[in-house]
Simulated scan of single mutants.
Amino acid sequence: MVVKPDWLRVKAPQWERVGSVKDILRDLELNTVCEEASCPNIGECFHHGTATFLIMGPACTRACPYCDIDFEKKPQVLDPTEPDRLAEAVRRMGLNHVVITSVNRDDLPDGGASQFVRCIEQIREISAGTTIEVLIPDLCGNWQALETILRAEPDVLNHNTETVPRLYKRTRPQGDYLRSLDLLKRARQLAPWVYTKSGIMVGLSETDAEVRAVMRDLREVDCDILTIGQYLQPTAKHLGVDSFVHPDQFAAWESAGQELGFLQIVASPLTRSSYHAEQVKALMEQYPRPRPPAIGG
């Protein structure tokens, strides 16, 4: 058994604020990845009034052994009221930046792209000043579905590569490393004004050289933002932790990422893909990108 080090201790949240956010989520019958995936930062994020909304769930069509989202339940029919309820939560919480992610919905022809679009459109209608980040699955390589999402004009297109290629078979058996890179490359080509983002987890036996190789691959497809965080085993039935990576190593990766040209890289033991995602607003002000009139035909 690998003992969790001191640097992974999380401060106790102020439950009054956490409870306020939870009340909104329960009232509107919404899911968050913060809760469904047992995120260690749930207290801090809820305390600051932020949340990453999980749409089309909570049941997933894939069974990644590191993830705490349920894959044993049968996926539900898409709820047409979900986009309205999500937009109302954004309004009630007063969010300046919102992250929308989803379970994998390989049972749907478009992988759920149409639901992402409806959520983006409703948020734009009810809270025009809120910047929107979508953290999407690989859509089984359906690039028409990707274009559909990009036409809705999210501010950030996030897709996690999750780990190094050598570990895909063990950690992400239904995923494909090259497909994930291709998704990010196509997103840049289809919508060059969108800020592209990806994330990886460490502590699963990857080497420093392998992590740096992934970082180079991401820059080759012009990925703007990268997050690197420590994998934590959700339950005893999930994939075990091979090692707890020292903060100094995260600092070294962050420095390497800056040298490679990422516009933003966040690397620390508790970093998660959506952790402090609202900081992207500052990045957008520093590196503005004009939007074209429309995408595609």
Rank of each mutant, 00 (worst) to 15 (best):
G240S: 14
I228P: 02
D70H: 08
V211G: 01
G296C: 09
L54D: 03
V221Y: 02
E82K: 00
C140M: 13
A145E: 05
D68R: 04
R289K: 15
E72V: 09
P5A: 15
N104H: 12
G199R: 01
A59H: 14
A267K: 01
A51T: 07
H238P: 09
N31Q: 14
E220N: 13
L28M: 04
S274T: 10
L283V: 15
D176P: 03
A12M: 11
E153G: 03
Q233F: 05
N142H: 11
R17G: 00
V33F: 00
S198E: 05
A87E: 00
M93H: 07
R166G: 03
V33L: 04
P109V: 01
V103F: 03
K74H: 08
A236P: 04
G203P: 04
H159K: 10
R151G: 09
I55G: 00
E147R: 14
F116E: 02
D6S: 14
Y231W: 10
L218A: 04
E220R: 15
F53W: 06
V214P: 05
P109F: 05
R216V: 14
H238K: 08
R9C: 10
F116Q: 00
G19R: 15
A37M: 08
G203M: 09
V164H: 05
R212T: 10
K281N: 12
P83S: 05
V241W: 08
N104K: 05
M201K: 08
R166K: 13
I126V: 13
R186D: 06
L146E: 03
R186N: 10
V214K: 02
P109L: 14
A191D: 06
T52C: 14
V10P: 03
P109N: 13
D248H: 07
V266C: 10
G199N: 04
L135G: 01
R17W: 09
V98S: 01
N41Q: 08
V156W: 07
C140E: 13
Y287H: 14
I295W: 03
A256D: 10
Q258A: 14
A113E: 02
V221P: 06
R151Q: 14
W15V: 15
N31T: 07
P80T: 12
Q76L: 14
A252R: 11
Q264F: 04
